[in-house]
C-alpha cells in the first residue's frame, strides 16, 4: 500500500475548499465553518506524528474534521442545558458507546470513496483532488477564481495552448468523475 505523506504547507490550497463545503452543510454557518476548519488544520499539525501513512492525507484530515464538528455540537448542546445528541447504530447487533467507538476510528474510508448522496460542492472538490496537483491548481484559478489566461500563464510559465490543453484534460476528467460519482 502506498505510504502517504503529509505536507502541511499545501493543506490550505489543496483541501480548504473541500473541507469548507463539507463543513458548511453540517453546521450551516460560514464563520463557524471557518473556525472549525482552522482548528482542524492546527489539530492535524499537532498530531502529525500519529499519522501512519495508511490513509490519504485528505481522508485523515476529514477524520479530524468530523471530530471537530461533533465537538462543536457537543459544546453548543451543553450550553443549552445538556440536550442530548442521539446517534444510533445502523443495526441492532451493534451495541456500545456510539460516539466513542466510531470517533476513535482513525480513518473512515467512506469519506473518500462514497460520493453518492453528498453535496454538489463536496463532490466537485473531491473530484478536483483526484486531478494532478498542477492541473487542479490551474483549473481552479481559471474556472473558479476566474483569473485571465495571461495571468495564469505568467504564474506557471506556460503558453496559452499549454493552458488550454490542461483545462481540457481537467474538464474531461472532472466531468467523468462527477458522472460516475455524483450525477
Amino acid at each position: 500500500m502506498a505510504n502517504h505523506q503529509l505536507d502541511p504547507q499545501k493543506w490550505v490550497d489543496k483541501y480548504s475548499d473541500y473541507l469548507y463545503n463539507y463543513t458548511i452543510v453540517k453546521v450551516n454557518d460560514k464563520e463557524v465553518a471557518e473556525d472549525i476548519i482552522s482548528e482542524t488544520f492546527l489539530a492535524g499539525l499537532k498530531s502529525m506524528k500519529n499519522f501512519k501513512g495508511e490513509a490519504s492525507e485528505r481522508t485523515w484530515l476529514i477524520s479530524i474534521l468530523k471530530r471537530k464538528i461533533i465537538d462543536y455540537y457537543r459544546k453548543i448542546n451543553s450550553n443549552k442545558g445538556k440536550a442530548e445528541v442521539r446517534m444510533n447504530y445502523s443495526s441492532d447487533e451493534e451495541t456500545g458507546d456510539w460516539l466513542e467507538e466510531r470517533v476513535a476510528d482513525p480513518f473512515d474510508r467512506t469519506a473518500e470513496d462514497d460520493l453518492e448522496n453528498t453535496e454538489l460542492g463536496v463532490a466537485i472538490y473531491a473530484c478536483l483532488n483526484k486531478l494532478p496537483e498542477k492541473q487542479a491548481a490551474i483549473f481552479k484559478k481559471k474556472t473558479i477564481e476566474g483569473q485571465d489566461t495571461e495571468t495564469i500563464c505568467k504564474e506557471f510559465d506556460i503558453t496559452p495552448s499549454n493552458l488550454w490543453v490542461i483545462i481540457h484534460r481537467a474538464r474531461t476528467a472532472l466531468a467523468s468523475c462527477l458522472e460516475e460519482n455524483w450525477l
Partner: peptide, 14 residues
C-alpha cells in the same frame, strides 16, 4: 452549492 472558502480566511489559516 459549490462554495469556496473566502480568500481572507484562507490567508488567515495559512
Amino acid at each position: 452549492k459549490c462554495r469556496q472558502m473566502p480568500e481572507e480566511c484562507k490567508k488567515r489559516i495559512r
